[in-house]
């Protein structure tokens, strides 16, 4: 190989950029750092990340950031337009401060996002890799179950679950997770099918490794990256589904400041008092967009098929 004229690197950067790491930790950190470098070079993805960090910050410090109590009603002060006295984004039909409600609502959004992101892909990964690696009748059974779930429109299925389990934010999350896992199972299975025939899996089999070890230690690490990308891209859909359930009155219940439920309440006044429904709508839009941007950036960094970028 020809030489590469290196830009000067010093201290911890040199330590991270080294081609010959001296320990397990250094090797791991160096590869993370490399990923970070290529992620950082994508401005859109960085924008997504900044918005989401902002969301995290807002949720964590909601009591400090919110100018008012999100549940405090003053009917005398109802339906104030944005920029009115003391209410930056106006007030809703019960005179509650919309900005404060959106700030507190971010906690609910994060809760939904986090729980769905933990439940659905993990279930999908389990089902998909087991089906893909073992093959045979187990594959057929698991994949037909997946097909059955896939055959229903997502929101309709979630509606059915919530109707059966009872309305409420917890059940809404459960319902969304139950409808979200099949695509992950499909992706994980497809990846597993290509990975399982590769030489490095054959090689570890020739060391006497059993299926459990191969699936968890050798197949999962390769499937996880594409699942993470997919989860991030799907998060926009999850937030919208949660908002949709809230809008239909099957998700978070009043007076909870869930964004979808807020839009639902604002619907009655949408012609005369547009801001009541628009402000939470903008919040949903921004966060969904941020997840999409982040997902795109992560795809470039994590997707093993896109190479190591050298």
């Amino acid at each position: 190989m020809s030489d590469i004229s290196t830009t000067e690197t010093v201290g911890w950067r040199a330590w991270l950029m080294t081609d010959a790491p001296g320990s397990r930790t250094q090797a791991r950190l160096a590869s993370l750092y490399n990923g970070w470098l290529s992620f950082r070079s994508n401005p859109m993805a960085m924008a997504g990340l900044v918005i989401l960090l902002g969301l995290l910050f807002t949720a964590a410090f909601a009591p400090l950031l919110a100018p008012h109590d999100p549940f405090y009603q003053t009917l005398a002060n109802r339906l104030q337009p944005p920029l009115s006295d003391g209410h930056l984004l106006g007030t809703d039909s019960l005179g509650r401060d919309i900005l404060s409600r959106i700030i507190y609502g971010s906690r609910i959004t994060l809760q939904i996002v986090f729980l769905v992101a933990v439940i659905a892909p993990v279930a999908g990964l389990l089902v998909g890799t087991i089906a893909g690696y073992t093959g045979g009748w187990l594959d057929v059974i698991l994949m037909r179950i997946t097909d059955i779930f896939l055959a229903f429109p997502r929101l309709v299925l979630a509606l059915a679950f919530v109707a059966a389990l009872g309305a409420g934010i917890g059940n809404a999350i459960l319902a969304i997770s139950l409808t979200a896992w099949p695509p992950y199972a499909r992706i994980a299975r497809a990846e597993t099918l290509t990975i399982r025939n590769s030489d490095y899996i054959s090689a570890i089999r020739l060391q006497g490794a059993g299926p459990l070890r191969i699936i968890t230690k050798h197949i999962w690490p390769l499937c996880i990256s594409s699942l993470i990308v997919r989860v991030t891209l799907d998060m926009a859909g999850v937030i919208l589904a949660a908002a949709g359930l809230g809008f239909l009155g099957l998700g978070a219940q009043p007076p909870s400041p869930e964004w979808g439920a807020m839009i639902s309440e604002g619907r009655k006044f949408i012609l005369d008092h547009w801001w009541v429904a628009t402000m939470p709508g903008l919040a949903i839009f921004t966060v969904s967009l941020a997840f999409n941007l982040l997902g795109d950036g992560l795809r470039d960094v994590l997707d093993p098929k896109s190479g190591e970028g050298s």
């Binding site: 020809s2 590469i4 290196t6 830009t7 470098l37 970028g309």
Partner: peptide, 28 residues
């Protein structure tokens, strides 16, 4: 590249007539 410019071909000169010109080398 992230670590500066990588020169894959560095100042190569040749001509080709009605002939069979071989270029040999290893990968890279």
């Amino acid at each position: 590249t992230r670590r500066g410019e990588f020169e894959a071909v560095r100042g190569v000169s040749f001509s080709l007539g009605q002939e069979r010109l071989g270029i040999v080398g290893e990968s890279g």
